[in-house]
């Protein structure tokens, strides 16, 4: 230290008249040249750190015409009674929770009870709307949230930095944060994590409905579709123009056009992939004035040791 001290001391006086205009410009020039490699720094870092990212489980599914499938969901509110007739919590929510071990209080598909004109209510099961102009993807600083060729929006919990700007940006309240160390049941420890099947949950990252494209590709329906006792939820492919609720296969375009289908907050131009057919459970005999639903439960949490829960 004292050595360096000495050196600078003896050098300084010689350089005394140092900082004249020419030197200054020279330093400025060196500075600019020094800053030039900055833009390639990220790719260098990426190379050296060899960052692997899970994107999705494989190649996108193809429709018979060779085009990439465009997943969609059509929820027929005429058939949704919020599981009032079952006397259970909404079964789509429960099925999704059990299938993904979603930590309490996350409801990736949440059944909102909304008021109708005249004071009756309707139930609106709401998964992530899989926006085609997704505000959440737009704002993410690290592309941890991204759009896929199949038209879904996924989150890579290995990349998410937990800034939560996507939660501020989502106009449908569809994103959830792992505020603490999320509970993980023993069976989830063996799960093969992918952005399409966000198990196990990771502390300090954002989660939401992933639209279960991995299940659709494997030939089954998403948990929520399977779980609905009234078959109110259709899942399908806009490219091939089919949709199914597990009971029947229909033309998606006909189902939408012939039943005044709509999307939530259409005026925001987020272009959701989730459609609704208006109703309040009348097709399964629900009276619009019967209020309330059973509160959601997270039965699997009992199997997770050291679980840390939090409130919504």
């Amino acid at each position: 230290m004292s050595e360096g001290d000495h050196n600078t001391g003896s050098e300084e006086p010689q350089e005394a008249p140092g900082l004249n205009r020419r030197h200054f410009l020279k330093y400025l020039g060196f500075g600019a040249i020094g800053a030039a490699p900055l833009p390639i720094l990220p790719s260098l870092l990426r190379k050296t750190l060899d960052q692997k990212t899970v994107r999705s489980n494989g190649a996108p599914a193809l429709a018979p015409n060779g085009q990439i499938r465009q997943w969609t969901m059509i929820i027929d509110l005429r058939y949704c009674d919020g599981c009032q007739s079952q006397g259970t919590p909404p079964q789509c929510t429960t099925a999704c929770i059990e299938g993904h071990f979603s930590p309490e209080p996350m409801e990736w598909i949440e059944v909102y009870e909304a008021e109708l004109p005249g004071d009756g209510t309707q139930f609106i099961p709401t998964p992530c709307q899989q926006c085609q102009n997704p505000p959440c993807v737009n704002v993410c600083p690290v592309a941890a949230t991204f759009s896929t060729p199949e038209g879904t929006v996924l989150i890579d919990q290995n990349r998410c930095i937990g800034c939560r700007i996507c939660m501020a940006a989502c106009p449908y309240d569809r994103r959830f944060f792992n505020w603490g160390s999320p509970p993980v049941p023993p069976e989830a420890l063996l799960a093969d994590y992918s952005a399409e099947h966000q198990v196990p949950a990771k502390k300090g990252t954002v989660m939401k409905c992933d639209f279960c494209p991995d299940m659709a590709r494997a030939g089954t329906l998403p948990y929520c579709v399977q779980g609905c006792p009234n078959d109110a939820i259709y899942y399908g492919d806009l490219e091939e123009d089919i949709a199914t609720n597990g009971e029947e296969v229909v033309s998606a375009s006909r189902l939408l056009s012939q039943n005044q289908a709509y999307r939530l907050k259409e005026d925001l131009n987020t272009k959701p992939r989730v459609y609704y057919i208006p109703g309040h459970g009348e097709a399964v005999g629900r009276d619009a004035f019967t209020e309330g639903r059973q509160p959601t439960e997270w039965p699997w949490i009992e199997r997770a040791k050291g679980a840390r829960e939090w409130k919504r």
Binding site: V139, C140, V142, A144, I161, R164, I165, F177, T205
Partner: peptide
């Protein structure tokens, strides 16, 4: 304080490695 607010401060470097110029945070 932005760093304090992060859920995963350990991944701060991601903002440089994977930064997207489309994001207001960047």
């Amino acid at each position: 304080f932005v760093i304090i607010d992060l859920g995963r401060p350990d991944r701060l470097l991601n903002v440089i490695i994977h930064g997207r110029w489309q994001s207001p945070i960047v």
